[in-house]
């Protein structure tokens, strides 16, 4: 890790945070809201906050977005 990532990891920590499982529980709802053009941070602020602090859940979130994109792409073309 680079030193700038180290200090960001330390300083971007907030007092309240949910667990990874709680984040996972709501992440499908969160992603559907994004796809529907809504802002999920109003309804699920704790998920947004966790994604900003937990790089593992953030990576799974990005993978989910990519997987859904792959599902749609091909469904449209055939």
């Amino acid at each position: 890790m680079k030193i700038t990532d180290v200090v960001k990891t330390i300083f971007n920590t907030k007092t309240d945070d949910i667990t990874c499982d709680e984040c996972f529980e709501h992440i499908d709802e969160y992603v559907d809201m994004i796809h529907a053009g809504q802002d999920p941070s109003e309804v699920l602020p704790q998920v947004k906050s966790h994604l900003e602090q937990c790089r593992c859940c953030e990576m799974e979130f990005r993978a989910l977005i990519s997987i859904l994109e792959g599902e749609i792409d091909h469904a449209d073309s055939g």
Binding site: A63, S66, I67, L68, E69, G70, E71, D73, H74, A75
Partner: peptide, 9 residues
């Protein structure tokens, strides 16, 4: 459906 998505990722 899932295989298409996971493959894409």
């Amino acid at each position: 459906h899932l295989e298409r998505g996971v493959f894409y990722y």
